[in-house]
Amino acid sequence: MNPSQLLDLLKAATGLTTDYQIHKKLGFSQTGVSNWRTDRSYPKNDVLIKFAEILDMNAGVLMLYSLARREKNEKAKAELNLLLDAIANAKFDDSFIAKDEKEAFELEKISSAPAKYSLENHTLNMMW
């Protein structure tokens, strides 16, 4: 994501229509906004954190874009871009939960469900 794309996202999220309004209303320097619009520089991390708050997104993702853009080593840049692509295409469901956490969640669901059978008078033998 280029800095100019970030500015466009900010405009959409805030209802602002010009870069000048972004500069004035959000308190960023006019030079900074101009440099971002022309993709001459990428916002610093403290600015990216503000962007993330406005856009309601994870600041770390914006920082990864910044890191990838500034990276000089082509192999490192390619690896960062692969990571960003994976994040962009990730499914955020329970597939990223650790197996132990899934099992604990399933046990919790079972224990809170109405019981079909009473185990009071039965002994369970478990093999370890």
Rank of each mutant, 00 (worst) to 15 (best):
M1G: 03
P3H: 07
P3F: 04
S4N: 11
Q5M: 10
L6E: 03
L6K: 04
L7W: 04
L7E: 00
L10Q: 01
L10C: 05
L10Y: 04
A13R: 03
A13V: 06
T14K: 00
T14V: 01
L16P: 00
L16Q: 01
D19N: 02
Y20T: 13
Y20V: 13
Q21R: 12
I22N: 01
I22C: 03
I22S: 01
H23S: 14
K24M: 14
K25N: 10
K25W: 07
G27K: 01
G27T: 01
F28P: 08
S29L: 00
Q30D: 11
Q30M: 11
Q30L: 12
Q30A: 12
T31R: 00
T31N: 04
T31P: 02
V33C: 00
T38M: 11
D39H: 06
R40G: 03
R40I: 02
R40N: 07
S41K: 08
S41Q: 10
P43N: 11
P43Q: 10
K44E: 15
L48P: 03
K50R: 08
A52T: 03
A52S: 06
A52V: 05
E53V: 10
L55I: 05
L55S: 02
D56Y: 06
D56Q: 08
A59Q: 01
G60A: 11
G60H: 10
G60W: 08
V61S: 08
V61H: 09
M63R: 11
L64I: 07
Y65C: 01
L67H: 12
L67R: 14
L67G: 07
A68T: 08
A68M: 08
A68C: 09
R69I: 13
R70F: 08
R70S: 09
N73Q: 12
E74M: 05
E74R: 05
E74F: 01
K75F: 14
K77L: 02
A78V: 08
E79W: 12
N81D: 09
L82G: 12
D85S: 09
A86M: 15
A86P: 12
I87F: 07
A88M: 02
N89Q: 09
F92C: 13
F92K: 15
F92R: 15
D93I: 05
D93V: 02
D93R: 05
D93P: 05
D94N: 14
D94Q: 14
F96E: 10
F96W: 10
I97E: 15
I97R: 14
K99C: 01
K99F: 06
D100Y: 02
D100S: 04
D100W: 02
D100V: 05
E101C: 07
E101M: 08
K102R: 05
K102F: 02
K102Y: 05
K102H: 02
E103T: 12
E103L: 12
A104G: 03
E106A: 10
L107Y: 14
E108Q: 14
K109Y: 06
I110P: 06
S111E: 13
S111N: 13
S111D: 12
S112I: 13
S112M: 13
A113I: 07
A113F: 07
A113N: 08
Y117W: 13
S118H: 12
S118F: 12
E120K: 09
E120Y: 09
E120P: 00
N121C: 10
H122N: 14
H122P: 00
T123P: 00
T123A: 07
T123Y: 10
L124I: 02
N125A: 15
M127W: 15
W128C: 15
